Amino acid sequence: AASWSEKAYNQKNKDAIKIENKITGATAFVIKRKSIDVIAFRGTEKKLNDIITDLTAIPVPYAGRMCHAGFVLQHASIWKEIKKHIDPKKRTMFTGHSLGGALAEMSASKMNGKHDNINLITFGKPNTFFKGFKRPMKLDNQISCVNGSDMVARVPRLLYGPSKSQTMLYFSNTGPDYINPSKDTRRADRGGVADRVADHSMNDYKKRLKEYLDSQEKVKPINQEAARQLEKMK
């Protein structure tokens, strides 16, 4: 998941099917494997359409929930094409970093109840769903990786919040990593302004995930299946 979330920033991936809308800027890559299909969404780049997307935070109905309107616009612009590559009989993983994580989460929401083998693994994902809409998704695994100081993973705050069904794998600044840390733990662990920008890097997420997988004794395991999926897809 981490490798493909990183590769999604590369416009040319020989092993993947590229799906793109040049108007909205939404981009995804479909990677077909024997046992799993991976759909990786590109995150935010320094482009006007991505900036407008991130700032358009009005809640609108989409995917059975109230969602961030900017994310909805990007997702809707490529979802019809993505659906053509989803096999309900085969395990499918949605993944992405930053904006890509939000698009991955909406994809999982779209397929919730329609596909029995969905994995969702995101990195530095902003809040996508309206706080007042608490219906959980029933997925095989839903893991949100969050770096301790990453400010993007905390916004927008006013109307939005993390999905109630996600498992948060939290990479701490000052001590052991955590599974589903309390708000107080995250608040106490928050770094300075410079760290809040640096901690959003996908390269840093990939590094921290590897460290976590190499040091499982530091934290309470998520579960064996989730650990296997993370190890397989890192």
Rank of each mutant, 00 (worst) to 15 (best):
Y62A: 02
I52P: 04
Q74V: 02
R91V: 11
D87Y: 12
F71G: 06
M66P: 00
I78Y: 09
L73Y: 05
I78H: 10
I82H: 03
A69F: 05
F94M: 09
R65L: 03
T56L: 12
I51G: 05
A76F: 01
G64C: 01
T95V: 05
L73A: 08
L99N: 13
I78W: 08
P59S: 00
S98Y: 10
Y62D: 00
R91S: 13
I82S: 04
V72E: 05
S98T: 11
G64I: 02
A63P: 09
P88N: 09
P59C: 00
K80M: 03
G70Q: 09
T56C: 08
A76C: 03
P88Y: 10
M93Y: 08
C67F: 10
G70R: 10
H75W: 14
L55Q: 13
P61L: 01
P61Q: 00
G64P: 02
K89C: 06
H75E: 11
I86V: 15
F71M: 10
G70A: 10
A69I: 02
G96V: 11
F71D: 06
I58A: 01
M66W: 04
I58R: 00
G64Q: 00
G64T: 01
M66Q: 04
F94D: 07
I51H: 06
I58S: 00
T53Y: 07
H68T: 14
T95P: 07
W79Y: 03
C67W: 05
P61M: 01
D54G: 13
H68P: 15
E81C: 05
Q74G: 06
K90G: 10
R91N: 13
S98I: 11
I52K: 15
K80F: 00
T53F: 08
I78V: 15
K90V: 09
T95Q: 04
L73V: 09
H68W: 12
P88G: 09
K84N: 08
I58G: 01
K89P: 02
I82W: 01
A76D: 06
G96W: 12
I86S: 14
D87H: 13
Y62I: 02
F71I: 13
I78E: 08
K83S: 12
V72R: 02
I78R: 09
H75M: 12
Q74T: 06
K84F: 04
K90H: 13
M93D: 09
A57M: 14
I58Q: 03
L99S: 09
M66A: 01
D87T: 13
L73G: 03
H97P: 03
A57D: 14
S77T: 06
G96R: 08
K84T: 10
F94N: 09
L73K: 10
L73S: 05
P88D: 10
K83V: 11
A76G: 00
I52F: 10
Y62P: 00
K83G: 07
G96A: 11
D87K: 12
H85E: 15
I86A: 14
A69C: 04
D87R: 12
S98N: 12
I52S: 08
M66S: 04
I82C: 03
F71H: 07
H97D: 04
F71K: 06
A63F: 04
T56P: 06
A57I: 14
Y62E: 00
M66D: 03
K90P: 07
M66Y: 06
A57V: 07
H75N: 13
K90Q: 14
A69P: 03
V72F: 01
A69T: 01
M93R: 14
A63M: 07
